[in-house]
Write a protein that binds this DNA or RNA. Structure first.
Lengths: 142, 142
DNA sequence: ATAGCTGCAAACTATTTGCAATCCC
DNA sequence: GGGATTGCAAATAGTTTGCAGCTAT
């Protein structure tokens, strides 16, 4: 399943607006992430990206992800394992996390709850809900 | 502020029940974590523990935390920085996370919401809410 | 007595950085 | 052309592990 052209195009125009150069590596990283829903690690993204850009370096993938995250085009995900995971879905959503294998899936939940604007001295911006459980695959294994 | 004796005692008896040897290092690690509310990293715990056990090794702190976590005496916390953080509060509670400095505080929130038992094939056990914002200290700095 | 712990040092994994070459605008 | 970006390799940070000696039970 390829990413729709409009997604690439909107990524390209976002880059231009933000003053980022549009390089094939950047497109490949973003496109890879956009095509996955499983919140891959940097290493996993790197493996995918190499199919399109065989000479890409891991350092570039790290740098690209960092840049895109700073600009809000992708999101770093709360994680429990020992490596960072990324998500191209920057809209407000929540996560389902497998306690057995660490997989993370997006969930849409209608929660009629808004966080307090301020609590314990913190100015609250946003919130995220993590549901912990066992994913379908791991249920089969056990 | 020292930890109350009853906390140490209950930790000791929990260890005995679980078949763990009660070593001064373990007590020091647990006590250190129990005395803090800021979800310290392993390095931070190590620094504190050294005040009581100057010859403790970092590897022991890592191993102790791992052991205590497996037995449910402490909890590994969702994190965004590049090191793991721990929490001696194993009761159900939520987190306030500072987007600027990464500090994590416990919050008690009354949320009249229970997660679905099953969603998208996952068997859901529990959930955690993260509120993201800016902590009091960082509000002052900016 | 002995299984479990610990300290040390070395190994490993994830991530970051310096730098020269290259590429977009 | 020129600053941003890349690839490579080396450096760093965080964590884990092997092993010999020690300690709680």
């Amino acid at each position: 399943m390829l990413m729709s052209l409009s997604n690439i195009e909107s990524f390209v125009s976002a880059c231009k607006e933000l003053g980022l150069k549009v390089t094939p590596q950047r497109i490949a990283v973003y496109e890879t992430l956009k095509n996955r829903t499983d919140h891959p690690t940097v290493e996993e993204i790197y493996i995918d990206v190499k199919e399109k850009q065989p000479f890409v370096s891991l350092a570039t993938v790290y740098r690209t992800l960092e840049t895109l995250e700073e600009l809000g085009l992708i999101r770093r995900v709360a994680y429990f394992g020992n490596s960072v995971r990324y998500d191209a879905n920057v809209s407000h959503h929540h996560h389902l996390i497998c306690l057995s294998c660490g997989a993370i899936s997006d969930v849409e939940l209608n929660i009629s709850w808004t966080p307090p604007e301020e609590i314990m001295g913190y100015k609250v911006n946003t919130f995220g809900l993590n549901l912990f459980g066992i994913c379908p695959k791991c249920q089969t294994k056990s």
